[in-house]
């Protein structure tokens, strides 16, 4: 990472969510990408890490549209690898955020 990149990150604290790569998570990642245009999707071996300044929202409806079935946000647990940020979870949304952002 370059110094200017590091500086940019330091200005707005970033949150992230990392998911295993598999058939189901591909749709979840798609949904997160669509709902968070400010986020950056980084691919690593067997894992995808999504970084965004300030906030990431994971929406149940967006995932259901892509999976074509009902989805309980707690199913995220099956694919999650790691995350960073305060969590706010309801039936419809799973939000990661820093309050300083």
């Amino acid at each position: 990472m370059s110094a200017s990149q590091a500086e940019g990150y330091a200005q707005t604290p970033i949150v992230f969510i990392a998911l295993q790569t598999n058939d189901e998570s591909r749709r979840i990642i798609d949904a997160i990408e669509a709902d968070n245009p400010h986020a950056k999707v980084n691919a690593f071996p067997a894992m995808v890490k999504i970084d965004a300044p300030g906030r990431i929202v994971v929406r149940r409806e967006s995932i259901e549209e892509r999976l074509g079935r009902a989805f309980d946000l707690r199913e995220l647990q099956l694919h999650l690898i790691s995350l960073s940020g305060n969590i706010d979870e309801s039936d419809d949304e799973f939000v990661l955020h820093w309050r300083t952002a």
Partner: peptide, 24 residues
């Protein structure tokens, strides 16, 4: 995959930095 120094930058300097700013 990446060097220790790179991992430290991403997971501590960057992510850890955000976390501690939240706790300020």
């Amino acid at each position: 995959v990446m060097s220790w120094a790179e991992a430290w930058e991403i997971y501590f300097e960057q992510n850890g930095g955000s976390l501690f700013r939240d706790l300020e």
